[in-house]
């Protein structure tokens, strides 16, 4: 905590502030000066806070308000108050449950790409350093930089049932993106492809941060390599792994959105409609603002509960290298 670094340096004032003048000040001048002294941090924060209020917190409040109304998003049409009707409709319709299930599927399906493969690759390749290591890092990271829509385009081509290389190699025309069973798998694999390199680099950064003396000491004490990994390296890596899990849970469904919107539009038959896509669908395809807002509110509350739970859990589980 280095706060208070510039405490004594109000804007526009140098060191030459006359002390004596402050000794017998008129009351108003004191008030004015105190305000001036306190002003700088607030002034520096003003643009950011205005933007946050206008574009994040105002709309959040309005979404809550909108969830009790019925409206079709047209400025000319009336907004009617409907109480909890939107929430009732939402909970009665099967869409919500199905989309929550799909969200869960996406999150679980992403964990191999964000946690399992990165940790395995990280552990197996600890010894690869230097120039070769830098080249591998550059290559595995590249998909992260591919725009989601471009990724969608190239995978649509790779997975094309008549001409795509994947089906030609496996020798059977699977229509990956248009069959209920495989569409969700395809979405997960494409998202995983985007993110896996990033997760590998996060894990190897975490591994580099672990003091090698611990493992060496265990070796001296007769621990096998596997034992050292299981009982020393993995526990020390747990903050990194907790971060990766948190990231997966909170962002997975978000990452899939551009892919779903361009490749499957939530189909076939809703098989890839997760909660994010459902919100989009209610608002901008069905023009049912109230229903969309109600879903958004429920979702936001669930999100906050989930995130705080995970943060608490990861705090408790993490071993810290002190």
């Amino acid at each position: 905590m280095v706060a208070g670094l510039l405490v004594e340096s109000p804007a526009g004032e140098g060191v030459a502030r006359p002390r004596s003048a402050a000794a017998v000040p008129p009351a108003r001048a004191v008030w004015w000066r105190r305000a001036l002294r306190a002003a700088p941090p607030y002034l520096y924060l003003t643009p950011a806070v205005i933007l946050l209020v206008v574009w994040t917190y105002r709309p959040l409040a309005q979404t809550v308000q909108l969830s009790f109304h019925s409206w079709n998003l047209l400025p000319t049409s009336p907004i009617r108050e409907v109480g909890f009707a939107n929430y009732e409709r939402l909970l009665d319709a099967p869409d919500l449950g199905a989309s929550l299930w799909q969200t869960l599927v996406v999150i679980l399906g992403m964990l191999p790409f964000t946690l399992v493969i990165p940790v395995l690759v990280g552990l197996l390749s600890r010894r690869v350093r230097g120039r070769a290591g830098a080249v591998y890092r550059a290559l595995v990271f590249a998909p992260m930089l591919v725009a989601p829509v471009a990724g969608a385009a190239v995978w649509q081509w790779l997975l094309d049932p008549s001409a795509g290389i994947v089906d030609k190699v496996i020798g059977s025309p699977v229509n990956w993106l248009h069959e209920a069973g495989t569409a969700q798998i395809a979405i997960i694999v494409i998202t995983g492809w985007h993110i896996v390199g990033f997760a590998v680099l996060v894990v190897s950064a975490g591994l580099t941060g672990i003091n090698p003396d611990y493992v060496a000491a265990a070796g001296v004490d007769g621990a096998s390599r596997a034992q050292a990994t299981r009982w020393i390296t993995l526990p020390l890596l747990s903050p990194t792994m907790a971060f990766l899990v948190l990231m997966t849970v909170l962002l997975s469904a978000q990452w899939t959105f551009p892919l779903i919107d361009t490749l499957t539009q939530g189909g076939p038959a809703g098989a890839t409609t997760n909660i994010y896509y459902l919100l989009w669908d209610y608002g901008f395809h069905s023009y049912d603002a109230g229903l969309g807002a109600a879903a958004g509110v429920l979702f936001f509350v669930g999100f906050v509960v989930l995130a705080s739970g995970l943060v608490l859990l990861s705090d408790r589980l993490s071993h810290h290298d002190d």
Partner: peptide
């Protein structure tokens, strides 16, 4: 970070 984009998009 807790306010998903989809929640604020309509307003």
């Amino acid at each position: 970070w807790l306010v998903p984009f989809q929640v604020t998009m309509m307003p």
